[in-house]
Amino acid sequence: MDREELKKVIYELVEKSMGKKKLKQSDILKKVSADHGVDKSEVKAALRELLDSGQLIFTYFGGSYVEIPPKE
């Protein structure tokens, strides 16, 4: 799976879980790695690109989670 496709999978996972369950970074790595047979380090690198570009953000509510930023 190429990097862009992987980023899309991660984004959709976070989007689908919104309002149901807050995802931690490790939840995303485990889920995407298991479902798509991709190494965790590749998932981590793709997730980092999404975070660095601001498409996803870290939030803190007792623990740290990955979420889609609120619309302005």
Partner: peptide
């Protein structure tokens, strides 16, 4: 306490 604050790319270092 908490919420959505921080600097881009970092998930730590700022406490809302």
């Amino acid at each position: 306490h908490g919420g959505i604050v921080g600097v881009r790319g970092y998930g730590a270092g700022v406490i809302g």
